[in-house]
Design a protein around this nucleic acid. Structure first.
Lengths: 217, 217
DNA sequence: ATTACACGTGGAG
DNA sequence: CCTCCACGTGTAA
């Protein structure tokens, strides 16, 4: 009751719709039916002060912004869920990490497919699924930062138009899209020390569920 | 000064390091050098109350969590920046949307490469860059939700092991990863009405910079 | 107890 | 004006 002593007399929840989020936040209990306000005959927006109105407006905008975040995370969860099963209780951190690793993985798939396509131009037809680029390191019981690998087929060696930086060459109304030649996917360090508390066995299992790409690739 | 009247006597900024963020948040001005506390001869953790200590601990945990978010967004920005140039002032919303669209785009590239690989098993070798799957709809001046398309080559038609849902078949210690056969990328609706204020020309240009994948693909 | 998220708010751009 | 983000906090799981 210290930071929300200036609570607005109504809630923005019914303005934004229900939380419809990730099954954890059901804290939609904030109606406060405008009882016992001093000026009973005032219009619905009680003219407390001009400042209070600005704060409510700012707050409403912030709630809209947060709602957009929620929707974008849901969309991202949908697309990631096409590649790995995520369960319905994935955190946003997990989604961010999974998105990063998934993009790296699709990059690798495209590279390996380009190589296979190049090889099969002289060889017979082989249609291998693009995934087994390298056998994954499954020793995950020690440190959570370890299992990321960087075994990457070098890209400039195969002489073909690189698959990244794609349609930007022709459909470019402005010069905003300079395609940024791919320095081949480095493992984005700065994750090694992100677990402040030592991971327990349960931690590792849960972490493995939430960040599958860190362990299975 | 209303929500932070119970500010802790030191800042967690030096515990977490500087913001090192995305060029906008340089608001690292929170040192408050422990001046004029009531009990001057108390140990550094002033025994205000047991509750105050818990709040500081909770707050510290929250700051660590937010820091992880920041780092994950930076990593995501790095990988997305390998495919489109993003500028250094991309918002997190923009990163989320770009990540979603980038994954969809890489999916399409993989599908088209699979098709090309299938065709070239009988035809001559053709090494086309994977991007021009379909000519993009550039009519973007009307509604911001419109330019997403769904012209998708149907996937089961080409008879080959689908490229998604990748290495999960063999390296699966638990049965958590049931690969979720890809219902081919539908446009994730619920974005059509997310701009509360009507977009101005400046809005559209800025939106185009921030969400390149919604416009160029 | 801890984690994840929303809320109201201040501040920068 | 606005948008974006961090902060301190409450709260549900």
């Amino acid at each position: 009751m210290k930071s929300s002593d200036s609570m607005s007399p109504f809630s923005y929840q019914q303005l934004l719709g229900p939380q419809n989020g990730a099954s954890r936040n059901d804290a939609t209990m904030n109606f406060n039916d405008n009882s016992s306000m001093l000026g009973q005959f005032s219009p619905p927006t009680t003219p407390d002060s001009a400042l209070q109105l600005r704060r409510e407006a700012n707050n409403a905008r912030e709630r809209i912004r947060v709602k957009k975040h929620r929707e974008c995370f849901m969309d991202l969860k949908d697309v990631i869920g096409r590649h790995v099963s995520l369960g319905k209780d994935v955190s946003r951190l997990a989604l961010l990490r999974s998105a990063t690793e998934l993009i790296k993985k699709l990059e690798r798939d495209i590279i390996s497919m380009s190589q296979a396509q190049n090889d099969s131009s002289r060889q017979g037809s082989m249609s291998d699924p693009p995934s087994p680029v390298s056998t994954g390191a499954m020793g995950m019981a020690t440190s959570p930062g370890a299992p990321l690998r960087s075994a990457m087929p070098d890209f400039q060696a195969v002489g073909l138009p690189h698959p990244f930086a794609p349609a930007l060459n022709n459909a470019n109304p402005t010069q905003l899209f300079n395609p940024t030649l791919p320095n081949i996917p480095q493992v984005s360090a700065a994750h090694a020390m992100q677990y402040q508390h030592l991971p327990t066995l349960n931690d590792l299992q849960q972490n493995m569920v939430n960040h599958p790409f860190e362990y299975i690739m």
